[in-house]
Design a protein around this nucleic acid. Structure first.
Lengths: 159, 159
DNA sequence: GTGATTCTACTCGGATAGCGACTGTCCGAGTAGGGAAGG
DNA sequence: CCTTCCCTACTCGGACAGTCGCTATCCGAGTAGAATCAC
């Protein structure tokens, strides 16, 4: 069970976008240069964020990506879901239906104790992720590394 | 991010083993027949449980698998970890090290805010899984489907 | 009859293919800005 | 000089290979029990 590394890329890219000049779109190439990532593949991840409504993209010269809304409105769960998809990690195959005492007309995705146990854990996971917004992460970085916003803006301003 | 379906198989197999005759080893073939699973592949999952110390295996006639200890001592997390491995789903690649304000001598698996956010969620996930033991699941099934233990024993007794 | 020995059938365990998802890359559609041309 | 048109360069977006881990399977090592044989 491994998560796509695109999640890490997406989180850092979103943070960098919070520090970019307001209204300015940032190209995938510049975001990739920030962290030495492959441009085309990062572009693919950013596309997923656009589809999820987290970013807005524009083509052509002076085009690029920018945040679609306030960082306080976007949770870490939103970003993770945008990259990983909405389906849960544990997908109950309802094997209990075939087992002793199984009933064909019961939805074992809800009734099976194993599924419930796993679901409860995933709910807790989601709750933690939903409790943090991009603004929270942004604030944490700014208090620990006050120069990061300025350095990011400088890097993004480079041709 | 999808979890191996072996987790579901392992949980149900362990539950069935709690209902098997005390001291009797159950073969992978019989466990597979309970839920109509491919025998060889289920065997592979059970091997992982043996390596994790959850089950004990014995070869030859009257061989098979049985629980290594009391069901109350085995948590759902133990089972999941045995199948999925110990590494976390989110593996920080420390791309922040290359980013603005990055320091080469900092462990970003600990310091990066993205990594911390993800880690906090995974900790909550693990905590939920560790809070439930096989005995808990066993009790839940027995209170909802009182006939399941008996039916399981009957199925396992069949040649 | 009893004990040791051999033999057989059974089970787990690791080694071996097959497949889907993540990883990585490329080129085309569309666009904004600049430059040229005409009034 | 100003306006209009065209053209170029740039960027995203989706389509196309490569690789790794999960899925599925098979055969050999080891063993417990039964059958056989000698005493």
């Amino acid at each position: 069970m491994q998560m796509s590394e695109g999640v890490e890329w997406a989180l850092h890219s979103c943070l960098s976008l919070t520090w970019a000049e307001q209204g300015e779109a940032v190209t995938a190439a510049k975001l990739a240069a920030l962290y030495e990532l492959p441009t085309a593949y990062l572009n693919k991840q950013l596309q997923a964020l656009v589809r999820a409504g987290i970013l807005i993209s524009s083509s052509g010269p002076r085009g690029g990506f920018k945040l679609a809304c306030d960082p306080g409105q976007v949770t870490v769960l939103d970003v993770v879901t945008a990259i990983e998809g909405r389906q849960e990690a544990f997908r109950c195959q309802e094997i209990a239906r075939k087992g002793p005492g199984g009933r064909a007309n019961v939805n074992y995705r809800e009734a099976c104790v194993a599924s419930q146990a796993m679901r409860r854990a995933e709910m807790a996971w989601r709750r933690e992720l939903a409790a943090q917004t991009l603004a929270d992460l942004k604030g944490q970085v700014e208090s620990r590394q006050p120069r990061t916003p300025e350095l990011t803006r400088q890097q993004l301003a480079k041709p």
